[in-house]
Design a protein around this nucleic acid. Sequence first.
DNA 1: GACAAATTGGAATATACGTTCTATTATTGA
DNA 2: TCAATAATAGAACGTATATTCCAATTTGTC
Lengths: 286, 286
Amino acid sequence: MDRATNYEQLKETISRSYPDMSKQLQRIARFALEKPHDLALGTVAAIAEATEVQPSAMIRFANSLGFGGFSEMQQLFRGHLVERVERSTSYRERIEAIRKKQSNGAAAPAGVLHELVGDASAELAHLEENVSPASLKAAVKLIAGAARIHVLAQRRAFPVASYLAYAFNQLELRTHLLDGGGGMLRESLRSVAREDVLLVASFRHYSPEVIAAAAEAHARGVPVIAITDGPLSPLKASARVCFELADDSSKPFRSLVAPLTLAQALVVSTGHQLAEQPARGKKKKP
Amino acid sequence: MDRATNYEQLKETISRSYPDMSKQLQRIARFALEKPHDLALGTVAAIAEATEVQPSAMIRFANSLGFGGFSEMQQLFRGHLVERVERSTSYRERIEAIRKKQSNGAAAPAGVLHELVGDASAELAHLEENVSPASLKAAVKLIAGAARIHVLAQRRAFPVASYLAYAFNQLELRTHLLDGGGGMLRESLRSVAREDVLLVASFRHYSPEVIAAAAEAHARGVPVIAITDGPLSPLKASARVCFELADDSSKPFRSLVAPLTLAQALVVSTGHQLAEQPARGKKKKP
DNA sequence: GACAAATTGGAATATACGTTCTATTATTGA
DNA sequence: TCAATAATAGAACGTATATTCCAATTTGTC
């Protein structure tokens, strides 16, 4: 095991030996790569606490990488830190460089990413303004109290549905993703009961099947929660709770950042709700 | 003499009291202002030697500025060091703006959303830092030149795959979503050819099927583009191009904002690329 | 299911570090 | 030049910190 001599090498060494490490050492390895600042400045005790590990494990970690001790390894993290600082002016230059490249006609991929990141940030800011706490609370109540959760979306909105289905399953809620495979949508829908809840997501141009499904469920008395884009959405009529995310249709490729963050908020809030007031007809871990 | 609370104040205090200092303290003061990094990281002994001064003089210096000891003063230098690094992420201001809107957030749904929006913004900022223009360009080239595009992801990463599949289809590229339904993953994989490209996404804990699939494709000479989380990912070994989004694993519910925005950047950039240099063995609109 | 090996937790130890104290050396003013 | 005072050097001290070591626990294997 040859000891690294700078941060880049160290990163490489950690990555390479990561698979062969014990569970605890892996935990430390992840922390080290994610929060190099903390490793650079903290004491062994402090870092060990942050990683939820004994101080001795930190030394073992350093030793396993070929260092004589923790301090020896820490030097590399410190070196990297000052390096970053001394080069920190270059970041703004990089952005400028990207900006210039962008204006010369052919949109460079890096410029595209930069722009999308900007758009996404703006979307997030709007999201917070357009979502009322009352709606969130109502939706969480419906979800937490439901016997089963059904999620439905298609096309562009489908990732939102698959995320919701995955995340609610992680919370050990009975969740069904209605993907309408093989034209089974009507059949699946019939099994949605009044004590359940139906989560739908759809944006322009609204998928007719989803609209129809929401309307039918609503007519049968099933509570519907809708994630959609603005007051013109046909989903609004069928929804007990409706989240209207003003989706800027001027962009050709609209992003899913806002609806997904909303979805995540629903999941996390539901998790909190369940933790406070557990057991409402659904199973929990033993 | 009131003790400073941040680096800027400290600088000011030193400048002000400089004229009244003894010769030796002035020497230290100059050193401190010229090499703040050394003050941040070095030990008393080391700094004293660099300044050609006795260690005790360093303590006298700190005391003369109102600090209880050297370590207390050093905290300010350290704080400044990490601040410089973290500030270079440019979006920090926007994040702060969002964070400041309301800070009384507990576990209330609105507070949760607020927090998630903040986290997502931070993720976006990191995304831009961690993605190199070269990787993006290389990935776009691979995608635009491929006969067919295959997309694979499972569990938490699945929404990324479904988004990619949908979006590339909109670009009228031959795109296949390998969802592994009914254990058909191995069979679907066999149809992936060397002139195709395989896009995979996986985060901890990495789905073994996806890892294996990527490795197999790579072994067969199929170019693999991976979206994953950091240098520890087992996908790295199989990838022609690998996007490493340092996913903060300290949060229980990690968001998909960063990978999805990256995915969108790939789609949009590929769109541009195709517009410039059309027709490479794939059909176009009639 | 029992044994061996590896991993981990936690107290004990050694070391490095910051700090304090005092003797010594410069500095200043008469 | 000689006190009187401030400044400094350097050793001594106590604390905080890294490190070591062994027991306890988990993990792997037959």
